[in-house]
Design a protein around this nucleic acid. Sequence first.
DNA 1: GTTTGATACTTCGTGATATGATGTATTACG
DNA 2: CGTAATACATCATATCACGAAGTATCAAAC
Lengths: 105, 105
Amino acid sequence: MDMQLKRGLLDVCVLAAIKSKDSYGYQIIKDVKPYIQLSESTLYTILKRLETSDMLTVRSAEHGGRLRKYYHITELGSKRLEDFKTEWQEIVALYQFVTGEEDKK
Amino acid sequence: MDMQLKRGLLDVCVLAAIKSKDSYGYQIIKDVKPYIQLSESTLYTILKRLETSDMLTVRSAEHGGRLRKYYHITELGSKRLEDFKTEWQEIVALYQFVTGEEDKK
DNA sequence: GTTTGATACTTCGTGATATGATGTATTACG
DNA sequence: CGTAATACATCATATCACGAAGTATCAAAC
């Protein structure tokens, strides 16, 4: 997909990936891969941003000798997902304008 | 709307505003206002980018003593709008992932 | 008749951001 | 032992939306 188009969807997409159960970087990338191709550097940038804005919390855990950082969605993060549903209406309206379902002007 | 969310939609939105008939800066802003709030500086940045990428052509014209620059969509620009319809499918798939219409994972 | 507001385009600087490249360290497989 | 997969981190860069500020014209208001 066009890089520009998915911007703005990245944050909610990552939040969605951890909403049902805590997850970690590598797993998140795998989970969203069918929908969005994102690199590690991009993901960690996003995770950092979401942490800073209190959308998620981080917890380090050992797993098979390897360090893993599990990300847990906060209430604010869940709210963000809810708000997104509202914003989606505006995006759809915009889509209709672009595709020109009636040029009623 | 969230600034991030509309990114990527901006270009096609501007293209859509000139697709049926040539238009100019101030008019474009008015036309897209119900769907996207964009400032003059933003619009002219976009118009410049679209011109550079051959999505539109520019023509200067006098109108009531004032200069106006009319923008005309090119074939490439029209193609961009067509391609957007395809990309929209991917965006919808992403939306469904985010809102979790069935976590079938 | 001068001030105000709308029209119309331009330029500059800034902060946010996605991403490739690169690096470190461990485990599993052959 | 070497290679690939796992897992996280950092840096440098290019793109980009946008506010701020500027220039200039025209119409309406006072």
